[in-house]
Every structure is written in C-alpha cells, then in structure tokens.
Amino acid sequence: MEPIQLFQLASDKAHWLSVRQSVVAGNIANANTPDYVAMDIDPFETVLNSVGSRMAATHPAHFTEDPLRGSVRADTGQDLNVSPSGNAVSLEEELIKAGDIRKEYELSTGLMRTFHRMMLQTVAK
C-alpha cells in the first residue's frame, strides 16, 4: 500500500494559489501602468507535472528557489483590449480570477478538513 500524499498535494495547491493570487494582485496594481501586459501562472496540473524533485534546505540560512515563480507568463488568454497607453489589463478579468482563486482555496481547505476528520475517526476507533 502506498502512503497517502494528499496533504502534500494540498500544500502544493495552496502554494500555487498563493503565487497566483500575488500575480493577479500585481496585475490589478498595475492596471494604469503604461505598456503593462497582464501576467498569469501556468495551470496547477502543468506545474505539478513539471516541478519534480528539488534540493532540500537543511539549514535556515540555505536559499531555496520557488519553482512556481518560473511558471509566471504573459496572459494570452484575455482579449487584449489595449488602452491608448498600451496597457492590456482588464480589471473585470482580474477580479474574476481573484474570485476563482478564493473558490479554489475554500474547496481545497474544505476537502482537507474533511479528510483530516476522516483520518482522526479511523485512528480513534
């Protein structure tokens, strides 16, 4: 029987959601910056398949590289309605993304809470 890696997967998903939220927040913050192009992060499934193993930090002074930062790219999925200043950020699209991130986070934490409760019940009996 293989060990259950659900908690690690949930932790990776939460980290991905955190990085995506910071990218979306950066897009919203730069909504009036001339020539700014909206950014987004690769889908979680793509990032999960490409991350693989990485070096462990065994000492607090060790630097660690965030593998998800490399998956930030220009967002080509939007209708690029470029303003006269050259800005291609749609606040409506960014707010929709922020709402989706919140829903995914709530779903992930709800599933983890349920799984944790289920594990506690099986151990207690």
Rank of each mutant, 00 (worst) to 15 (best):
N32H: 13
T33G: 10
E45C: 09
D42S: 09
T46Q: 15
T76I: 06
G86C: 03
I41W: 02
T46R: 13
N81L: 12
G86S: 04
A56R: 11
A57E: 11
L80S: 08
A29M: 11
H62E: 14
I28L: 10
A57L: 08
A74K: 15
V82D: 01
A38Y: 03
A25R: 07
G26E: 12
P67I: 01
D79Y: 05
G70D: 00
T58D: 12
S85I: 11
D42R: 10
D66W: 03
D42N: 06
A57P: 06
E65C: 00
N49K: 15
D66E: 13
S22G: 08
L68N: 10
R73Q: 04
V23E: 07
R54A: 08
N49M: 15
P67S: 04
P34N: 06
E45G: 03
D42P: 00
L68H: 06
D66I: 09
A61G: 05
Y36G: 07
S50M: 12
M39E: 07
N32T: 14
D35E: 12
D75A: 08
Q21F: 06
I41L: 07
T58M: 13
A29I: 06
P60V: 13
P67D: 03
M39Q: 14
V37M: 10
E65A: 04
P84T: 08
V24R: 05
L68T: 05
D42F: 08
V37N: 09
D35A: 04
D42H: 03
